[in-house]
Design a protein around this nucleic acid. Sequence first.
DNA 1: CATGAATGAGACTTCATTCAT
DNA 2: AATGAATGAAGTCTCATTCAT
Lengths: 227, 227, 227, 227
Amino acid sequence: MPHRSAPPADELADGSEPLQRRRRKEARPQELLDAALALFVEKGFAAARAEEVAQRAGVSKGTLYLYFPSKEELLKAVITQNLGSRIVAGAELVAAHPGTATELLNVILVDWWTQLYDSPAAGVFKLVITEVRNFPEIAGFYLREVVQPAHDLLGAVLRRGIAAGEFRDVPIDHAVHSLVLPLIMVCLHRHSLGACQVDWQIEGRDFIGQHVQLVLAGLRAGAPNPA
Amino acid sequence: MPHRSAPPADELADGSEPLQRRRRKEARPQELLDAALALFVEKGFAAARAEEVAQRAGVSKGTLYLYFPSKEELLKAVITQNLGSRIVAGAELVAAHPGTATELLNVILVDWWTQLYDSPAAGVFKLVITEVRNFPEIAGFYLREVVQPAHDLLGAVLRRGIAAGEFRDVPIDHAVHSLVLPLIMVCLHRHSLGACQVDWQIEGRDFIGQHVQLVLAGLRAGAPNPA
Amino acid sequence: MPHRSAPPADELADGSEPLQRRRRKEARPQELLDAALALFVEKGFAAARAEEVAQRAGVSKGTLYLYFPSKEELLKAVITQNLGSRIVAGAELVAAHPGTATELLNVILVDWWTQLYDSPAAGVFKLVITEVRNFPEIAGFYLREVVQPAHDLLGAVLRRGIAAGEFRDVPIDHAVHSLVLPLIMVCLHRHSLGACQVDWQIEGRDFIGQHVQLVLAGLRAGAPNPA
Amino acid sequence: MPHRSAPPADELADGSEPLQRRRRKEARPQELLDAALALFVEKGFAAARAEEVAQRAGVSKGTLYLYFPSKEELLKAVITQNLGSRIVAGAELVAAHPGTATELLNVILVDWWTQLYDSPAAGVFKLVITEVRNFPEIAGFYLREVVQPAHDLLGAVLRRGIAAGEFRDVPIDHAVHSLVLPLIMVCLHRHSLGACQVDWQIEGRDFIGQHVQLVLAGLRAGAPNPA
DNA sequence: CATGAATGAGACTTCATTCAT
DNA sequence: AATGAATGAAGTCTCATTCAT
């Protein structure tokens, strides 16, 4: 038997099922979620047509409903899928990172947020802000899985910095918000006004770094032992 | 001045028309705008039904269309009416106010924003962020009449502060955003997640003050002549 | 003030509301119910399109939903409205009628059924038989409001006839069915096979009379005191 | 004849193909017809989903279309297959049976109908009544192959009974209907209201016998020579 | 032969808008 | 000016049917 180079990518060794179709089937949900995210962020959930989501994912209307039972369930899947995993990744990033509170905040807020800002997932913030009031289940998920963990994480870092004398003693919750809210805001901006063809823009990536420096400077001002 | 017995409340001296009705007639557009603002912010433009707007304003569906030619025009009127005037008022406030840059920023950002935060007009931010991409005319108006003037105003104050040595030399645009974006964000929050029955809230009014202090501290850090 | 002849029919004395529109509004539900009955009987509930019901009632699709919240509710209304009242009327007819059991059965079964047979309401039998299993609420209503009262009524008359010696002693329930089921069946036939353009028909009205005679003859056979 | 060890159950002597699979393959159409009958009777043709028919027959959606070109053809096959054969069998039963008209009617109406009543084929009546108006071809088949032969057969028996003086002289067609329609009706009932979980039922088998006795009594009443 | 992923026509339902009253 | 009955375009979702594997 002649030596054969690697089999074509679309065939499994066990020949269980035609790969091409299976691969498509497995990829479909993600393709639909991506298309839905983009479209929901662009037009809003109510104004986005289900058929357009399907089209953007390269399938027909009916196929969408093969994978998601309703437009509303699709929305929820979009939100849970795009935020859940990132928060976990962020927490691991912090856990793996030694160093001062200042260094840590730079890692989290600049690196992690810049990456988020550049990904389509940044649009989910717009989606959540727009749709929570119409779909109350989203509120619970978002608070529990996103807001609370992220807020606690940053709060802990700030507290460590204050304890170490890096930062002066400020109200933790408010300081976390001062750090984070503008970062959320630039994500929102990128997908609303920033996506319009206008001659006024926020340079998001530059801003993220500058903002963190400015607020950290405020935190260090008058601290016993500024790094 | 001859004594005149008070006319019946619902009738004008010239007998032209009952006052109460005339008053209501004149108030209609505003009542409709208020109702529309509330409902559009609550549910989003697309998901809000025109009839519900009318109902909330205490009139019938048909009456809405006597005052606004379409739901879309109503949206535009809501936005222009609620932001246009406030910016003018803010500018006048600044012009009338002497003092250091720090004092001025406290006046504008704390006083003016707290007032906005507590008014229904705060919801317009959500509306703009949600709907600009669907109605591009809004982008132009919002930039020209709201963003640009407000940004320029704050930028000028910052520049004055830097010139006076109150603040260190920072990138103006970014610093303005660091100051302002969280304030917009708490307005958004109040009308999205904050409006849900959840046990996690931002205390907006407290935060506004704390945030301005924190960022001003960052601006003064290392300044030649911190006030 | 000159004497004025009767006002035009479309104007109310108290001028409360324009009559023409009001009259239409009040007539709509009945017109829709009639159209729905005809169409549901003709095609079956599932195969009948809501728009066609509306069209047959001379209104547009949307108007249907002004009066009935869904196609299913329309079905239920059709059934309750067309059977509920007739049973009551039948019971009153019996109560008002003196005479022997034989005479009474002739009145009820021949007169009342012939009238039903000739009315569109006869179609409801087809509807009920076809749709009970899909809409279980119908079963309860139909049994309680139609089957049970009618069966009890006829059973009582038969019992009276047996007590009076007019009829021999037979199992009441089965005898009632022997009398009634064929009458239901001709109603069904009229709206299924009988409505097709075929050269085989049941002459319903003749049959009703003959059938009652035949079964009554069977009941009297061997009775102690046949009328 | 040489002794041969029994072949494995799922394999033919000629080794052509496993028996089990071939058997299934050959049985498919019947399994599909049975499933379709049950489901169409239960939900109505329009409301029954093709996939559910397939599922109930233990095959996939696609397989259904290997055996029947469309859902509509499946319906027609269900009807023709379930009624055609039984009528022939009934006619042979009569031909093979000597005796008086009364005896004959007892055989046909009680024995044959009780058997039909207990078989799934009884549901076909519901199907025909429900669907003839939507599929006119059914009308022709049903009349030609079912109604006409059965009616003629019973009519002939009645005529024989009248000629023999067993029965009095009644209108033949109507008398046939008086005999038969209730029997059809109990079949319908069994598959509509009778299939619902309600506390009111017709005891079909008892009724069939009682009904035939009652009507025969009516036919004999006043006959010259009642058997 | 058998499967089940994919399609798209078509049905139900909603709602912005009109207009007779 | 005000109403609310009526409309019909448009959107969500279903399901008979096809076809690549």
